[in-house]
Amino acid sequence: MLRIAIPNKGSLSETALQMLAEAGYATRRDSKTLHLIDDANGVEFFYLRPRDIATYVARGALDVGITGRDLLLDVRMPAAREIQALGFGDSTFRFASPGGAFSELAELEGKRVATSYSGLVEAFLGERGISVDVVPLDGAVESAVKLGVADAVADVVSTGTTLRQAGLEIFGPVLLESEAVLIQGPSGADGVDTLLRRLQGVLVARRYVMLDYDLPEQLLPQAVEIAGGIESPTVSPLDREGWVAARVMVRRREANRVMDELYALGARALLVTAIHNARI
């Protein structure tokens, strides 16, 4: 069986479970469940702390796992590698310090930097030849400067409000743009390709919708210019002479614009339907 690690809690857990359900896999009903066998699909799920997943996968105890790119890079174990970005759990890592204290990374040399991602920060600064005293914390790193244990912090930033409330300002480049990822270890187990195709199918279904419309056949070349689909539209003759029905996949975020343009061209009976899964 393919052994898969899933976040047992936190921001990644719920969306990961939903994605696996959409991909046709069994999911746990009780949040206290730590192990689940899906015989129908030949997989075994282990629900673990997100921070531990990359370690288990890298050591070969589990075949694949869903975790954050930040957590993967933080453990610094090359045996585990990212094989698919999953499009959720986005986060951005930045440096911050009291206003005006630092303006560029080189000024951190020899300073104390508080973070919950010691490995990530050390690797990032080490690649740039900057040596710092990393202060490892398990959370709320924005308080470290005020409490006198650090000169700067490295943390996840969304709007920056929390940092500003702590009297800190962002400086320097982005450390990392992170998101949930599927990672694979050294085992090379059977079933990884099937899992990957299914998850990619869910990603496609979330990005695209199916658009159906009718229009005069002579307008079809212009309609294809507006919405060409993955390969090309599926076209069928209508009972109404000179008219055809077309079906095409379009990006979800562009669907309304495409409908407007097709309607202006002369298309009618435009319908959009969701795609639950796909293989492209």
Rank of each mutant, 00 (worst) to 15 (best):
P50N: 12
P50F: 05
R51W: 08
R51H: 13
R51P: 13
D52Q: 03
D52V: 11
I53K: 11
A54G: 15
A54Y: 08
A54P: 14
T55Q: 10
T55M: 13
Y56R: 15
Y56T: 14
Y56W: 15
Y56F: 15
Y56H: 14
V57N: 11
V57M: 04
V57A: 02
G60S: 07
A61H: 07
A61E: 15
A61P: 04
L62V: 10
D63W: 12
D63C: 05
D63Q: 03
V64Q: 02
V64K: 06
G65A: 09
G65Q: 08
G65W: 13
T67H: 02
T67L: 04
G68V: 05
G68I: 14
G68L: 11
G68W: 07
R69H: 10
R69Q: 11
R69Y: 08
D70T: 07
D70Q: 15
D70S: 12
L71V: 06
L71H: 09
L71P: 09
L72D: 11
L72H: 13
L73A: 12
L73E: 13
D74N: 10
V75M: 01
V75L: 06
V75K: 11
R76D: 12
R76A: 13
M77V: 07
P78N: 07
A79I: 08
A79T: 11
A79M: 13
A79C: 12
A80P: 10
A80L: 11
R81E: 11
I83A: 08
Q84N: 11
Q84R: 11
L86C: 06
G87W: 07
G89L: 07
D90K: 15
D90P: 11
D90Y: 14
S91R: 15
T92P: 00
F93C: 02
F93T: 02
R94Y: 03
F95W: 05
F95G: 05
A96F: 04
A96V: 05
A96N: 05
A96L: 08
P98D: 07
G99S: 14
G100T: 15
G100K: 12
A101H: 15
A101V: 12
A101G: 09
A101P: 12
F102C: 09
S103H: 13
S103W: 10
E104V: 15
E104R: 12
L105H: 04
L105D: 05
L105P: 08
A106R: 12
E109P: 03
E109A: 06
G110F: 02
K111E: 07
K111H: 08
V113K: 04
A114Y: 03
S116K: 01
S116E: 01
Y117E: 08
Y117D: 07
S118C: 02
G119S: 01
G119F: 00
G119Q: 01
G119D: 00
G119N: 01
L120D: 00
L120Y: 00
L120H: 01
E122G: 03
E122R: 05
E122I: 08
A123H: 10
A123L: 11
F124D: 03
F124E: 03
F124S: 01
F124N: 02
G126P: 08
E127R: 10
E127I: 04
E127Q: 07
R128T: 00
I130T: 01
S131D: 02
V132D: 00
V132I: 11
D133G: 09
D133F: 03
D133E: 08
V134D: 01
V135K: 15
P136N: 12
P136A: 03
P136R: 06
L137N: 15
L137H: 14
L137D: 14
L137Y: 13
D138R: 14
